[in-house]
Design a protein around this nucleic acid. Structure first.
Length: 901
DNA sequence: GATCCGACAGCCC
DNA sequence: GGGCTGTCGGATC
């Protein structure tokens, strides 16, 4: 039950207030089943023998009290052993005007007017069992524990330098840490019945210098692996049998000293019950992975994002089935179905997705059982049918994989408590110890493993693949990852520019082919943009699969500090089907006909990069790459310094314009010389020194072509400078702008490699690139840096469909372009960033752009476009048509040439 | 083999 | 946290 629903229920009971029903209405408002409340009312469940009092085991003590005795009475109740024996969570007293309550677990008090109860509804939320589930903490407990563990880990490694000698000993250390964590949790969360038994026994039975700590731990772990404690000394015999695989393997604990033993005991004193298994595993992972230490589990997926994925993939549908089930038979059948589903995360890390899924599935089962209990005349005890063995995972990191297994056990324990609390009277759970089956998490490289061996799938099996696999663009992949890519895409050409995550897409697509299975990932948005679209998506969509749902790009965030600068999408894939598809944007959910690989509500079009323009437009090229490690570039001061020393150097220096200089209006310069004046340039000492540095830098490059360019260090690596004016388009730009900001420059400027330029231009072309039609296209097909678009000549400009227009139309467009330039000139002090920021854009400039837009759109068709979706759909159709004609045309040309021969 | 381009669990102000 | 650099490998000509 959602908290908003509970609040409404409470308001209802106040609005339709009845003295006789008040306490029963209150319990019902918090989701206590009707059956239980009826039995409580009849007296079966009322454990109080005093007339007028209600004492409901583990839930509530209630009594009507005189106004002047409310406060004193609540104190005496809090100390009444007869009452406390039944462990009621709350004591509630009222005179039906004022309400006084105490949370007997937390000791919190409530003293309010009864009428205002709905404002304080959250006080009683534990009645709904939501406390354990929605443990709200700001990760402070998780963080403290992680830091402390990191301290212990570092010192242990220092004391035991041989642990890194072999893979096996690192693995043993991982298991050791995992066992320690289990003991800390166990002693604080009722898994071990006796509170703090681990820390206390450790403190009492080891010496302060730490010399015997490891033997104590070895013996203890041995004891935890034995069914009977009779061969052990009393202080170990009192521990329970745990095993379940966790203590099965014989390992040797690392050696301790005074300091590490002390830290171990300090760790035991932390409040492990407040730690949240959902994300703790990811944080603790940072302990053994120093690269992640500074940002403590940066890459774990937030609960919110996990829900964004699992809800549309399977949870919404299962809840619908639950709502629709009317009979006990149907409800039992649903439980049967759920208990057979397999959940598989092929990049599970420390298990976030599996844990959240496990909890959600247990919660759904509880709801189904509640409904069954309400329907049955003689409800019987309920056990859970959900098994940890339904949860499968692959994880490359050994420690993370141990953490995933451990966290699933802890989640099971946590959910057993919720189960008993919410199905009170009927919910029964077996004791967690000894640990039984575990999640089926395997350590290994998911790109190399045969997934159907790890999570077997038959024709009948219902399997959901979930997760957040690693993202790595091709230029950041290391050798072994490139080998992985080669292996996965062995029969496919042109895969090398795909992101590493494409392996998980392709393998999942093959896994679910012709099966009753679906998959969804949180993924970098780069596979839905730019070059990668035409490379990846035909491999999926041509296999009879489609995008069932998707969340459009949003920035990656979680509770860890230092979030990655990356934007992600969530994509769900299924075998072709006719049921609805859903496109999500933030909180907007839209039912759509199709979801394209660009995650838009359009048909499936792949726009591939082209080397020449599809439309009748002049060619655009990339600016000039210095490849100089900064030595051919000068800022204002450096330029002034050189010229004041060597006035003759002025002719070797040109203005250098990149995206940043253009957008922010700053100045930079570059050393740009021609063949004729090379010798002269070397005479300038300051220049010669710089050329030498360029030479050294280029010689050190990995790239052969660059090494060769070391012979001519006075030239740019790639010089594209030409005579005449040019249009400049910045490569990168903020997603917030409504127009691509572009500019005119003359030959005194060298455009940088962060720009795209057109030499030999006419004004109307400026109009085409500045138009709304163009930015709609660019925003759809361009690659991205974070959320911001990356303008590319091959992908954005060469692919842009624009009709052939007459000279007269061109002259007409020219006028609108001059208007725009005039409007810009009215604000000489403003930078392009200010001019094109939607919130500060001058009205005149905006108007000039809007007039141009109308004129450009009339080149396509006379009927105006309603919105950008319509514009994009039109452009995609035109693109397809033009590409078809273009390929036909080029084939004809080829055959004609052959005939001539 | 030369040329050209787009990327970036980013990078820097 | 807004907003775009520069070197590199991959693909194409």
């Amino acid at each position: 039950m959602k908290s908003a629903e509970i609040k409404n229920n409470v308001q209802d009971l106040i609005d339709n207030f009845s003295k006789e029903e008040f306490i029963f209405d209150l319990l019902r408002a918090y989701g206590i089943s009707k059956t239980s409340v009826t039995r409580l009312k009849k007296g079966d469940y009322n454990l109080s023998k005093v007339d007028g009092e209600i004492l409901y085991k583990k839930k509530i003590f209630f009594k009507v009290e005189a106004t002047d005795r409310l406060l004193s009475s609540i104190d005496s109740i809090s100390n009444n052993e007869q009452i406390l024996k039944q462990k009621p969570r709350f004591a509630v007293l009222t005179d039906y005007k004022q309400l006084v309550a105490r949370d007997l677990k937390l000791g919190k008090n409530l003293d309010i007017k009864l009428k205002e109860l709905s404002n304080y509804f959250d006080f009683f939320l534990p009645l709904a069992g939501s406390e354990v589930y929605n443990a709200t903490n700001n990760n402070e407990a998780d963080r403290n524990a992680s830091y402390k563990m990191a301290e212990l880990y570092d010192l242990l490694v220092e004391e035991n330098p041989n642990v890194y000698n072999s893979k096996e000993s690192v693995h043993e250390l991982n298991i050791f840490l995992s066992r320690l964590l289990f003991c800390f949790f166990a002693e604080d969360t009722d898994i071990f019945e006796q509170d703090s038994i681990f820390t206390n026994t450790l403190a009492q039975h080891t010496t302060e210098n730490g010399k015997d700590t490891h033997t104590f731990l070895d013996e203890l772990f041995d004891r935890l692996n034995s069914e009977s404690g009779k061969d052990y000394p009393a202080f170990l015999a009192k521990f329970p049998y745990v095993n379940g695989g966790l203590f099965g393997q014989k390992i040797y604990s690392p050696k301790f000293n005074t300091k590490t033993r002390k830290i171990l005991i300090d760790l035991g004193d932390l409040k492990w019950s407040e730690i949240n298994p959902d994300i703790f595993g990811s944080m603790i992972q940072a302990v053994v992975d120093k690269d992640y230490r500074s940002d403590l589990g940066m890459h774990y997926t937030s609960v919110e994002n996990i829900k964004k994925l699992i809800k549309p993939l399977f949870l919404d549908e299962l809840y619908e089935a639950y709502e629709n089930a009317r009979t006990v038979k149907q409800l039992n059948a649903l439980i049967q179905r759920i208990s057979k589903i397999k959940f598989f995360d092929p990049a599970c890390g420390s298990g976030n997705f599996l844990i959240i899924t496990y909890k959600e599935i247990r919660l759904l089962e509880i709801k189904i059982l509640q409904k069954i209990t309400d329907l049955e005349t003689n409800p019987s005890f309920k056990w859970t049918s959900i098994q940890l063995s339904q949860f499968y995972g692959i994880e490359i990191d050994d420690f993370a994989h141990e953490m995933a297994i451990l966290s699933l056990w802890l989640a099971e324990h946590q959910m057993n408590k919720v189960f008993e609390e919410m199905l009170f009277d009927y919910g029964k759970t077996k004791p967690i110890l000894p640990l039984k089956e575990a999640g089926q998490i395997q350590q290994g490289n998911a790109t190399r493993k045969d997934w159907s061996k790890i999570c077997p799938i038959s024709k009948k099996d219902e399997v959901y693949i979930i997760g957040n696999p690693p993202y790595l663009g091709y230029s950041r992949q290391d050798e072994s990852q490139k080998e992985d890519m080669k292996n996965v895409f062995s029969r496919i050409n042109n895969y090398k520019k795909l992101d590493y995550i494409a392996c998980w897409f392709y393998k999942a697509t093959k896994y679910i082919e012709n099966r009753f299975s679906k998959y969804a990932y949180v993924t970098t948005n780069s596979i839905t943009q730019g070059e990668q679209v035409a490379l990846l998506w035909p491999l999926i969509l041509n296999k009879g699969q489609e995008i069932e749902f998707a969340h459009q790009s949003f920035k990656w965030t979680n509770n860890a500090k230092g979030n990655a600068g990356v934007a992600v999408v969530i994509i769900g894939i299924r075998n072709n089907d006719t049921t609805d598809k859903f496109l999500y944007n933030q909180n907007l959910k839209q039912s759509v006909k199709n979801i394209s690989p660009y995650i838009t509500n359009t048909s499936n079009v792949y726009v591939s990069p082209r080397t020449n323009p599809l439309s009748n437009l002049p060619s655009m090229i990339k600016g000039s790459s210095p490849g100089d490690n900064g030595n051919l570039l000068l800022d204002q001061d450096e330029k002034n310094e050189i010229i004041s020393k060597y006035p003759e150097a002025e002719k070797f220096i040109k203005k250098y314009i990149g995206a940043s200089e253009f957008i922010k209006g700053t100045s930079r310069y570059c050393i740009h010389i021609t063949d004729e004046n090379v010798k002269e340039a070397y005479k300038v000492k300051a220049l010669e020194e710089r050329f030498e540095k360029v030479e050294i830098f280029r010689l050190n490059s990995k790239k052969v072509a660059t090494q060769k360019k070391a012979e001519t260090p006075h030239f740019f690596d790639e010089d594209k400078h030409q005579k005449g004016e040019f249009i400049l388009v910045p490569q990168t730009g903020s997603e917030r702008r409504n127009y691509v900001p572009i500019g005119y420059f003359d030959e005194s400027y060298v455009p940088s490699n962060a720009t795209r330029v057109i030499y030999k231009v006419q004004p109307w072309l400026f109009g085409v690139i500045s138009s709304r039609m163009h930015i709609v296209w660019v925003k759809a097909v361009a690659g991205r840096l974070k959320m911001d678009m990356q303008y590319s000549n091959t992908l954005c400009y060469n692919t842009f469909p624009f009709p052939d227009i007459t000279t007269k139309q061109k002259e007409n467009l020219n006028q609108y372009v001059f208007d725009i330039l005039d409007e810009r000139a009215k604000h000489p002090s403003k930078t392009m960033a200010q001019l094109y920021n939607p919130s500060t854009m001058p009205k005149g400039l905006l108007q000039a752009h809007q007039e141009l837009d109308t004129a450009i759109e009339q080149c396509y068709r006379l009927q105006p476009f309603k919105n950008d979706t319509e514009r994009l759909e039109y452009l995609f159709k035109l693109y397809e048509k033009m590409v078809k004609e273009d390929t036909l045309f080029s084939k004809q040309k080829k055959t004609r040439k052959k005939k001539v021969k």
